[in-house]
Design a protein around this nucleic acid. Sequence first.
DNA 1: CCTAATCTATACTTAATAGTCAAGATTACT
DNA 2: AGTAATCTTGACTATTAAGTATAGATTAGG
Lengths: 159, 159
Amino acid sequence: MKLSANEEYGLRCLVRLAYAGFEERALTIPEISQAEGVSPAYAAKILRVLRKGGFVKAARGKEGGYTLARPAASIRIGDVIDALGGRLFESDFCDSHAGQAPICTRSVDCSVRSLWRAVQVAVDQVLSKTTLRDLLQNEEEMNSWVRTIPGANGLRLIQ
Amino acid sequence: MKLSANEEYGLRCLVRLAYAGFEERALTIPEISQAEGVSPAYAAKILRVLRKGGFVKAARGKEGGYTLARPAASIRIGDVIDALGGRLFESDFCDSHAGQAPICTRSVDCSVRSLWRAVQVAVDQVLSKTTLRDLLQNEEEMNSWVRTIPGANGLRLIQ
DNA sequence: CCTAATCTATACTTAATAGTCAAGATTACT
DNA sequence: AGTAATCTTGACTATTAAGTATAGATTAGG
């Protein structure tokens, strides 16, 4: 139950590109890698995932670089996380040992899986409501956000 | 953002031991490993972690085996997950590259980290309210649980 | 058309996690 | 005491994720 490096750095790259987008400026791999403190090669690897996920687009050649492929407000963090590292649980543990044990009361469900599902729902409620736009700390527009999660140290989510 | 194998199997082992506890019965490694569909050696490895975490206790020798170290109702799932695989984010990404970048508005915080913290809070709200006892599907006592998480397919949490 | 700046792709290395193996230590029962 | 059933430990291997290296493809500008 950890964040992968891909998820962490990938999301950070998007935030930078969103800021650069305010000035209609593309960022190059050297710029991004230096800002994030990772090697250019690794930044390139992450950016490829983001490009294939449709979150960024690249322009080659001189004066090239990366920009967001669409407006920050239309990029849901949940979708980004999906592309970068997958959801909390994918394998179907309960099915794989169905019939062996007295724990599963229904053939395709059991208590442990229900718990993971509850966790997944809780996570999704945060991630699917948050867009890349919400992560930009832009004082002027903070008023458009409504709810503040207690304990989340100031993060606002769309209502 | 995935569940580790340790977390999945470790929690399942605890559920089995809790059920066995109803009959005041200890479970051996062969029993547990067969029920969970993992090798005895791997089950032993996981059970060691659970023992060091204080969740189970072991009796050696003939007639030995594992039992819960304390009542299921006193074992919080959040603590189990902590012992088995750690929390969602540990490293302090924002501090590690502080001073380099224009994203962090405060020296020890930034938008991405706030998001992770919000996710962590959401997860904790589920995991710290749920005990091992809550995962036992015991019809007689289901009434003592109060809230049902929508979409969680029947999981009840303590109010 | 040439060059420098840029992305692209694939293969490689290293580190972390998952899972196995074998030898040793403890206990109940006879 | 002896034996079989059990847990305990540490080292080992395999698989996956993280991160690197290198050669190639594309483009702007001279």
